[in-house]
């Protein structure tokens, strides 16, 4: 077999009560409970998402290490996950994330025009953060809402059939 079907379980010598926050641990535990007891690592993705949300939208190395210790995983295994998936940010980000879908249906629906508009108006390139720290602007691959193209995900909400005027209003309304 070319894959390992055994957990990577590495028990780190650390008091788990000192890791993260009690609230985060309780939230992560809810996910851990979904999987077989020896497969705590199955909860690594939701755990990283929770920790990232709690940390203003990004994951520091120290936080990833704490997730590793909490889930009995090698630290590198957590880094592998955090670097692989597009929703994790490993550098500080703006207060809000504006993710414009530019896959085929959104492109045909005017996503490029929308992206250029944001770039110009806010002086920010895809992947960058505005000088005032308000927005991190990302070009995203298909968000799976193609019938409402172009689609923009702002933090946790989808906005559909977004025009340049509409995105201005959406961004203005953010704090």
């Amino acid at each position: 077999m070319s894959f390992r079907n055994t957990p990577l379980a590495v028990i780190q010598d650390v008091d788990k009560e000192t890791l993260l926050t009690p609230e985060l641990r309780a939230e992560i535990d809810k996910h851990v409970a979904k999987y077989p007891p020896e497969w705590k690592q199955s909860a690594v993705m939701p755990a990283l998402t929770l920790v990232q949300d709690h940390n203003g939208g990004w994951l520091s190395r120290e936080l990833m290490d704490q997730v590793a210790a909490y889930l009995d995983m090698p630290e590198t295994a957590v880094y592998e996950v955090a670097t692989f998936y597009a929703m994790y940010d490993l550098e500080p980000v703006g207060r809000h994330k504006v993710c414009v879908c530019n896959s085929i249906s959104c492109m045909l629906g005017g996503a490029e025009e929308l992206m250029h508009h944001i770039e110009k108006k806010h002086n920010v390139a895809p992947g960058g953060t505005t000088a005032d720290g308000k927005l991190t602007f990302k070009e995203f691959e298909c968000l799976g809402a193609c019938r409402h193209a172009p689609v923009v995900m702002v933090d946790k909400a989808y906005h559909e059939c977004v025009t340049p005027d509409a995105i201005d209003k959406i961004i203005d309304d953010l704090d």
């Binding site: 894959f3 497969w39 690592q41 690594v44 993705m45 939701p46 996950v81 597009a86 929703m87 994790y88």
Partner: peptide, 24 residues
């Protein structure tokens, strides 16, 4: 089970890897 942004996880065995807490 929540994903975190990777098209490849729609491939069924990548999805299983992801469910096991790994890269997809």
């Amino acid at each position: 089970h929540l994903g975190a942004g990777a098209y490849i996880c729609g491939e069924e065995t990548a999805l299983l890897e992801s469910l096991e807490g790994k890269k997809g």
